[in-house]
Design a protein around this nucleic acid. Structure first.
Lengths: 343, 343
DNA sequence: AGAAGGCGCTAAACCGCTATAGTTGCCGGA
DNA sequence: TCCGGCAACTATAGCGGTTTAGCGCCTTCT
């Protein structure tokens, strides 16, 4: 048989479709003996649910949606994102929930996809990444009423649930550490300015520079690419009074920055300390290995999945989950500033 | 209105559901004037198709399936894969086709998912990655009769379509180049032995060593991780007669190998040449920059998407697409072997 | 003993859309 | 004038499930 339906099972067992449905979904309405027979036959016939048919009836789609509005070509570059995705999937897999993924050009297209998938009941919930400063997606999702979890926060995600890590606190720990080493002039190569966490990190660094009595810390925003990371570094190191330490918003940029330092004859860590926000293989295999704010990105993704699944189960209860603050892992790229720095 | 259906449109326009369906799907059976009015109203009411309902009727699901059987935690590490995924999605997005993604533990679970999605008509086709030497997935997919494209080949993919690049030829070009530089003792840090392309690469390198009259080339297989890449390198460099050049099956391992060389005081490229199979940001930002077999992975993924879409359109015509052979991009990590080598 | 209630099940409606057999009305041709 | 044929629709039957109303029948309580 091509594909057994519950009607086939019903016929074979000699009961009605409804009874089969009850039995297969573990709900009351059939005697245990009958249920056992139905399950037995279903197994024999190798029956499997037809999710489209279920979805039509308003039941679970067993999938969550992830829509990303980025130029697709830049996606593969970031280990962070890939790791996150892995963890997310790992978490979802446990309950056999699939991921419905789509990459689009811009936020308008993104919200369009939300409407589409929501109304077609293609997914049970959405995961929102790359939280923007004033994010138009929030209200669309609130209006659609589909369970949604925002990655990032705290705040700025309206009534939606969220999973986040304390970027600010992490950034403060970096500033404290560098100041303790004796650095007075820090610089920051940041990511996309429209991202919420970029703003948060810039502010954190500015605040702590002030608090610690350091020179004003300037942040240069980039598109997260190695090219712009390198360019920003080149500009910083060409200044008359160049920084003695640079904090990068991603590991790729930190690595690119390290390369630029080498190319310009600036020794790391003797003449320049480098810290990466976000850790991965890259920072570990670089030479010198790069001091980084590390977190278990895979676990972060898995946590995200858990919250998503829990929210689907119980949509009325909003969740706001703070995950572990990235902690500083000191490697070889940071040291007290050299004597020459005090020009 | 929560969610207009074609019945709502029909009522509003004053025609039957069937007429609306005809109009919306651009098929004959309605007068042009009527069609225009229907489309107009559908737009006004913000109607969108319910894919589950369509799928039930046997129509397109507008999604392709990608199931990956790897420990999820290793997925995020490889730029290659992430880039491929990006390109794939970019290609699919053009036709608003989504990707249904799932990461599973092993191949059994993987085939299970194929059966599931195929019978539930959740996807219109499958993309198969990580082609194994004797791959059990092939016959399952042949049996299911769902359009499928295998990434990898040539050969070994039964009656399924495929998209591939000529690994063998690429590897030969590496051997030729290194031999021309004067290297006589090569080594190969390969990937997972059960992968089809790993075998192909190992064979290519062995063959050409013989042909070029070089010392026998040994291949060490690994799990593609930086850790095993580093370990393999350490072992190779500890030998009495160590290789003067090492070819790595991935950029991450090449970078790890470069690190090990540094740590062991082996100068690159003076004492050791390094070549990476697969290019990415990593090879470019390493110091020294790593010579690599480069291809446009993003374009590769996009091509894969194109073939998939074409196959869905016309499933009876099998495709076998060879893409551009990765070409060697020489950077700073390769040079003629130093004089000391001829011990 | 009769009413009430619960169990185990069936029949049928329904979800949104597609496909197909019919129906209507209009035209031209014999 | 009647019929065939065609275009433009309508009505309806699925697709594979879930859900609800309802129907016997047996138990239990009064």
């Amino acid at each position: 048989m091509a594909r057994p339906t519950i009607a086939d099972i019903a016929e074979r067992v000699g009961v009605s479709k409804g009874a089969v449905s009850f039995a297969l979904n573990g709900r009351p309405g059939v005697a245990e003996a009958t249920r056992a027979r139905i399950l037995q036959v279903a197994k024999e016939m190798n029956w499997r649910p037809h999710s489209a048919a279920r979805a039509l009836g308003g039941a679970r789609a067993d999938a969550v949606g992830l829509v990303i509005a980025r130029p697709a070509s830049t996606l593969g570059v970031e280990p962070f994102f890939a790791q996150l995705l892995s963890g997310l999937q790992a978490g979802l897999s446990r309950q056999s929930v699939a991921m419905h993924l789509m990459i689009v050009e811009d936020v308008e297209a993104e919200t369009e996809v939300y409407r589409d998938w929501a109304s077609a009941h293609r997914v049970d919930g959405f995961i929102i990444v790359d939280l923007k400063v004033r994010d138009p997606r929030i209200e669309v999702l609130e209006e659609l009423g589909v369970p949604s979890v925002v990655l990032g926060g705290p705040g700025r995600h309206g009534s939606l649930s969220s999973v986040w890590a304390d970027d600010r606190e992490a950034m403060l720990s970096v500033a404290d550490y560098l100041a303790a080493l004796g650095h007075r002039r820090l610089a920051h190569v940041a990511g996309l300015p429209e991202f919420h966490h970029t703003q948060r990190r810039m502010r954190a660094l500015r605040d702590s520079s002030r608090r610690l009595g350091l020179a004003e810390t300037v942040s240069t925003t980039t598109d997260f690419s190695d090219a712009e990371g390198a360019a920003a570094t080149r500009a910083l190191l060409s200044r008359a009074r160049r920084p003695t330490a640079i904090v990068y918003d991603s590991d790729v940029m930190a690595l690119a920055g390290l390369g630029v330092a080498g190319e310009m004859g600036v020794r790391v860590p003797d003449e320049l300390s480098i810290v990466a926000f976000d850790d991965s293989v890259l920072t570990r295999i670089a030479h010198p290995a790069i001091t980084a704010l590390s977190r278990d990105t895979f676990a972060y993704g898995r946590r995200l999945a858990e919250v998503m699944l829990a929210l689907i189960e119980e949509p009325e209860r909003r969740r706001d989950v703070k995950t572990a603050t990235p902690r500083l892992v000191v490697r070889e790229s940071t040291a007290p500033p050299g004597a020459w720095q005090g020009d």
